[in-house]
């Protein structure tokens, strides 16, 4: 390592720097590989229960007089019995409904949810026939969530995979710290959407608020309407045919295709200037004042 000097590194491009620092040839050291695992210790590393459910087995829960904990426990019990389609009636804005489901399931929520609706899930298909509060679909790994009405702020925060769809408008900070997956918004989105976005795609059919894509590392944002302002290090890019094809497919899939088609969408990507802030020219450092 000592062979690469700071001065040399500064002259290199991003790609060259990564290679020169040995990051492309990742390997474990010899000593580590000789460690033998204690067979009993494997118990600590058992992945959670994944029930085998039948989508045709359907049941309803009236959640009116139940607490969130009771509802979630009930969902787990029903999944254990093999129910693959569960309908929640009268959620009345309860928080944390259906969180932490790590298995396939059809979950239908007939009404509105509060904060953290169906967050931390991996696999289920969720339909919410109502509104959701803040941080819906937070940290989702895979699956789909479709919301028929509006959604609150920090929609799909730290999303890692799957499709998160809201037919109405969403609040501020949509897709903050997003790490993958797709967010589709039929209406408008508020300020700071795509803030520190890392990967994935976000589509907003309506307008976007100020500081769109602020400090985004990577990923793509498509906006159909007006953009109030772009954030630091977010830049407009050319909408390619591939983008249009993908947009058409995704928007058609969820019935969100605007009448005007997809040609008028604006594509926003990372300017990548902040990737290596330390190597910026003096004048460029004022970027994040």
């Amino acid at each position: 390592m000592a062979s690469v000097s700071d001065a040399d590194l500064k002259k290199m491009s991003q790609e060259e720097r990564v290679t020169a620092l040995g990051m492309r040839t990742e390997q474990l050291t010899g000593k580590t590989l000789y460690i033998e695992f204690d067979p009993e210790a494997e118990e600590r590393f058992t992945y959670p229960w994944a029930p085998d459910v039948d989508f045709n087995k359907r049941t309803e829960i009236d959640t009116d007089d139940m607490t969130t904990t009771e509802v979630n426990a009930k969902i787990r019990d029903l999944m254990g019995e093999g129910y693959g389609t569960i309908v929640l009636k009268n959620p009345r804005g309860k928080h944390s409904l259906g969180v932490g489901i790590l298995s396939r399931l059809n979950l239908i929520i007939e009404g509105s949810c509060g904060y953290f609706g169906v967050g931390l899930i991996d696999g289920p298909n969720v339909r919410i026939n109502g509104r959701v509060g803040w941080s819906c679909g937070e940290n989702m790994m895979s699956g789909t969530i479709v919301i028929e009405k509006n959604a609150g702020s920090t929609f799909g925060a730290a999303l890692r995979g799957g499709d998160l769809v809201c037919r109405g408008s969403v609040g501020s900070r949509t897709g903050i710290d997003m790490k993958g997956g797709t967010i589709l918004v039929g209406g408008d989105t508020g300020a700071l959407s795509g803030f520190m976005m890392q990967r994935g795609r976000m589509v907003v059919c309506g307008n976007a608020g100020k500081n769109l894509g602020d400090s985004m590392y990577d990923g793509t944002i498509y906006v159909g309407g007006e953009i109030k302002s772009l954030g630091v290090d977010a830049v407009e890019a050319e909408l390619t045919d591939l983008d249009k094809k993908w947009l058409t497919r995704k928007l058609t899939q969820y019935g969100l295709m605007p009448q005007k088609g997809v040609d008028h969408f604006t594509k926003i990507v990372a300017g990548k200037q902040l990737w290596n802030y330390d190597n910026l020219e003096p004048t460029e450092k004022k970027l994040i004042l």
């Binding site: 509105s112 609040g171 508020g190």
Partner: peptide, 21 residues
């Protein structure tokens, strides 16, 4: 602050939204 409060007085299906910045 939360939908749950509005739902406490309006149990029927309603449309709500978040004001922006």
């Amino acid at each position: 602050s939360e939908e749950v409060a509005i739902r406490a007085i309006l149990p029927q299906e309603i449309d709500t939204y978040d004001p922006y910045d």
